[in-house]
Design a protein around this nucleic acid. Sequence first.
DNA 1: TTACTCATGTAACAAGTTACATGATTTA
DNA 2: TAAATCATGTAACTTGTTACATGAGTAA
Lengths: 170, 170
Amino acid sequence: MEKSLTELEGAVLSEIHHRGKATAFAVRRAFQVSPSVEWSGSAGAVYPAIKRLTSNGLIRSETQNTARKTSHLSLTPLGIALLDDWVADIGRAVGVGLDPFRLRSGLWAHLPTERRQTAFLALRDALVSQIAEAEAYHATLDAVEQRRTELAMILQRARLQWVERELSAQ
Amino acid sequence: MEKSLTELEGAVLSEIHHRGKATAFAVRRAFQVSPSVEWSGSAGAVYPAIKRLTSNGLIRSETQNTARKTSHLSLTPLGIALLDDWVADIGRAVGVGLDPFRLRSGLWAHLPTERRQTAFLALRDALVSQIAEAEAYHATLDAVEQRRTELAMILQRARLQWVERELSAQ
DNA sequence: TTACTCATGTAACAAGTTACATGATTTA
DNA sequence: TAAATCATGTAACTTGTTACATGAGTAA
């Protein structure tokens, strides 16, 4: 009876199983380049996580017989079952998450007037350019990352609307 | 030259400065009850954070001369300045954050058909009831927490729309 | 041959979690 | 007076971060 998967462990398993990432390095790279996932893809997080999951029987790791000591990763039946449980964990999925924008939203009103105005304008610009960037890259992504990017765009558009309402309400 | 505040440190400072929480215990309680903030309000996080901020000169801590050794907390001018910087940190504010829903969004399509259907229906129900709950409590909250709750509701409504689109697309 | 990328991993550190310990005050 | 709440804090643990170390393959 193990405790349930952490968010990073679930993300690692899904990179291997649903996005075809065959090595620890490829998983790291995916985290590093994804704008819709928040981990840095640090070696000190990914390698220990894969080690844990391997020794718990969720990941099958086949070391290649090449000079470059790469391991080919895949999920065991147990790994697939626990990944499905993690994916279908409704309670976690509907959690609001750690959102730096929401956390600050009630505090901008308390900034000195000029600084507040500047902040809202900067927020608007940053959101607009992030949305444009996401739209540009969207077509180049696989199905999983496309969905995530869609939701990231929905979030950024909602924030943008909120900011514009605040700006016009001044 | 210290490094910038962590998200929890900024949240702690804003609880004291913008929401009038005068003791470490009150800060903990605020985190524990807030549905729009993700920290557990554990003693092992809050007390060390306040200790750090106090010894770095951001928090003034006046121990009361009562049997109950409560400290009355307030921000120093330095604390107010660094809090304002944290609040106006646009780069952090527009980050997408750690979102368990977005992380899973691309993976639900890979669940076995029946389980997927069940998951989407459960997601819809959970989102509907969370929105209703937030609406009910909204009026009882202070200005800061009201804004956060508004943004949490915007997020949940956007998720709900997305889920309903997925359900009707099957 | 120099530099970049692929590839794996460890060490020191940071900052969160739960669980526990302690004691005062208030309320049923 | 028993239980709940107010109040502060530590200890063991988990898991993330950056920075470093090592080495193979590839492209300029």
